[in-house]
Simulated assay, not measured.
Amino acid sequence: MADKQISLPAKLINGGIAGLIGVTCVFPIDLAKTRLQNQQNGQRMYSSLSDCLIKTIRSEGYFGMYRGAAVNLTLVTPEKAIKLAANDFFRYHLSKDGKKLTLLREMLAGCGAGTCQVIVTTPMEMLKIQLQDAGRIEAQRKLMAAQGQPSSSPAAAKPAVEKRPTATQITRELLRSKGIAGLYKGLGATLLRDVPFSIVYFPLFANLNKLGQKDPNVKAPFYVSFLSGCVAGSTAAVAVNPCDVIKTRLQSLQRGVNEDTYSGILDCTKKIWQREGPLAFFKGAYCRALVIAPLFGIAQVVYFVGIAEFLLDLLPRRRA
């Protein structure tokens, strides 16, 4: 694609539209990913993606698969907008000397985009994880009660009514008890996930997308952008999955029966490695790939088709 500069409002609108469509399509898989990553050895409630979704529908109904979706739909617009617009911003300024972007500069642009997005990503993920994992904690509590086993987990012993807080209630409690830092728990782990993800994703996407361009000044066909987004997204997602597992564990405020707690990134990494083995770092990896592939495929199609540019072009005509 030519370096034709798209206005910032158009970039933000395209990123927001892409995020809303993508999250709506793949959120149930994301919920399954969170629950699979959080369950520890000896406390397994789900054996696979399909098993998790089936059990979720049976116990919580169809809309149980969308627990936490409201948080994502609210915050995904600024998150995706910042990520896509920041990458374009850094790519533009890193190529101002008129030279073609080297792989290193493409990676630097991706690094900048990933660093910027955590401003929104961290509190969004923090709230989403609590809502997504509440059903797993409650299902485990019911199973233990049915088996007549005493629970050593204070969280699991609480009444069921306390297991389903809203995002607003969680936010208020975190702000009251820990201040703004409460919403940014796991910030370091989020950076460890999102910065490498963007370093891998954006250069890989850009180079795959170029393969479909017949002319440097002409956009690649939409299906090329879609497939490039899917391949780049799934590759980056699997590559950083160990960091995603650590981030998910650190951001979970409630634990199931006899599940470990963690004091930080190193403590979490050590306990997972020693008690669950190295493969535990790839829990939910295929779910994450299934989430990220269409999410970024859709994002890139919307971004490159230019839906926002079309909508913004209509405004002057209506005023006229």
Rank of each mutant, 00 (worst) to 15 (best):
L8T: 09
L12K: 05
L12C: 10
G15L: 02
G16T: 06
A18I: 04
G19Y: 04
G22I: 01
G22Y: 00
V23F: 04
I29S: 01
D30M: 11
L31S: 07
L36T: 02
Q39G: 06
Q39F: 02
Q39R: 05
Q43F: 08
R44V: 10
M45T: 10
S47A: 10
L49C: 01
C52H: 04
K55P: 05
I57C: 03
E60A: 10
E60I: 02
E60N: 07
F63P: 02
F63L: 11
A70S: 11
N72K: 11
T77C: 10
T77Q: 04
P78C: 09
E79Y: 04
E79M: 13
A81E: 05
I82R: 03
K83G: 07
K83P: 01
K83L: 11
A85C: 14
A86W: 00
A86K: 01
A86D: 01
D88E: 14
H93I: 12
K96C: 13
D97S: 13
K100G: 09
T115C: 01
V118F: 09
T121R: 00
E125A: 01
Q130S: 08
E138A: 13
E138G: 04
E138C: 11
R141Q: 10
G148H: 08
S151H: 10
A155K: 14
A156Q: 15
P159W: 08
A167N: 06
Q169E: 15
I170T: 06
R172N: 12
L187K: 06
T190E: 02
L192R: 00
R193Q: 09
D194Y: 02
V195I: 09
F197D: 00
S198Y: 02
F202L: 02
F202W: 06
L204T: 11
F205G: 00
F205L: 09
N209M: 06
L211R: 14
G212C: 08
Q213H: 04
D215Q: 10
P216I: 12
A220M: 06
Y223S: 15
Y223H: 12
Y223N: 13
V224S: 07
G229C: 08
G229I: 03
V231M: 02
V231N: 08
A232S: 06
G233A: 09
A236D: 01
N241K: 00
D244E: 09
R249A: 01
L250R: 03
Q251Y: 06
Q254V: 14
Q254F: 15
Q254E: 15
V257W: 03
V257A: 12
T261C: 14
T261H: 15
I265S: 07
T269E: 03
Q274G: 10
R275M: 11
E276K: 13
P278R: 12
P278W: 13
A280I: 07
L290N: 01
P294N: 03
L295Y: 05
I298G: 00
Q300Y: 07
A308P: 08
E309G: 09
F310E: 14
L311K: 05
D313S: 15
L315V: 14
A320H: 13
